[in-house]
């Protein structure tokens, strides 16, 4: 196609392997290796141990995992509901452009600024939320709604609107068309929006670090606290917990999506 000779291909592939492994893959592998290393003073980690992982799964750190999961589910799933609603309701109306712009706002603005805004706005009347877990949930909701909206809006553009028209012409009420035609057809996109929301929420740090109260520390905040105290290995172990949890959640949601797509 592009490179025709065997030697040319070999050179390109070696270069690819080096760049991909060193630049893209290595950092993630290093974190995983460090999680299980007692020390790392040379090329390779040494003194394999599960102590860090045990530490990362006990006491405060375990509580963080639970906080992160709750936040991701509340914030992420609410975000999917509102994102889907927003995308479906705005599609094809005169509000579409406004909705598009508003929903892109939280992505275009740094998450730290989103956090600062919530802090400024909800530390005063009429809505006092500062110091509660709800301000964290809201921060996650706001950030993830943008991604959910984008995913569903993109899927809507690919779906032929005549399905809904045909259903309506067969005498189905708008509610019936929504529940039995439009939503089922969007289910794969909604499931993938949910996966993305949960994954991004699990790793969110910018807005969270601005608004979290001491009683509601998410995993990334704990990981940062650990690195700040110089406990890099435990931090790595906790990062692995975060990674593993995220992957499991996303895989489950992916399964659901697969099932939805089969129907």
């Amino acid at each position: 196609m592009l490179v025709w000779t065997k030697s040319g291909k070999a050179i390109v592939w070696v270069a690819f392997a080096v760049v991909f492994c060193v630049l893209v893959l290595a950092p993630f592998l290093v974190v995983i290796a460090a999680a299980f290393a007692g020390s790392w003073n040379g090329m390779l980690p040494s003194d394999p141990t599960a102590d860090h992982l045990r530490q990362a799964l006990s006491g405060d750190e375990l509580a963080s995992l639970s906080v992160s999961l709750q936040t991701a589910f509340m914030g992420g799933l609410l975000a999917v509901v509102f994102g889907t609603w927003g995308a479906m309701a705005a599609a094809g109306t005169r509000l579409a452009r406004v909705a598009d712009a508003l929903h892109h706002l939280p992505i275009a603005v740094p998450s730290v600024v989103v956090g600062l805004g919530l802090l400024v706005a909800f530390s005063r009347q009429p809505i006092l939320l500062n110091g509660t877990k709800w301000i964290v949930v809201i921060a996650h909701l706001v950030l993830m709604v943008a991604f959910s909206y984008g995913t569903v809006a993109a899927a809507l553009q690919r779906i032929d609107p005549s399905y809904a028209d045909v259903a309506a012409s067969l005498g189905a009420s708008p509610a019936r068309v929504l529940w039995q035609v439009r939503l089922p057809m969007l289910l794969p996109a909604i499931a993938s929006a949910a996966g993305l929301s949960v994954a991004l929420s699990m790793g969110e740090v910018g807005a969270t670090i601005m608004v979290y109260p001491a009683s509601w520390r998410t995993l990334p905040v704990s990981i940062f606290a650990l690195t700040d105290r110089g406990q890099a290995f435990v931090a790595a172990a906790e990062a692995v917990v975060l990674l593993a949890t995220t992957v499991v959640l996303v895989l489950i949601l992916d399964r659901l999506r697969g099932r939805a797509a089969e129907r």
Binding site: F82, G86, A99, L102, H103, V113, V114, G117, L118, A121
Partner: peptide, 26 residues
């Protein structure tokens, strides 16, 4: 078509309260 855009208001309102209003305050 006539009533449809009304349905888009609640999610927009949510964004307005949770994003736009805080940014204005900032």
């Amino acid at each position: 078509r006539d009533g449809k855009w009304l349905w888009a208001l609640p999610p927009l309102l949510l964004i307005a309260v949770l994003v736009v209003y805080p940014l204005v305050l900032v």
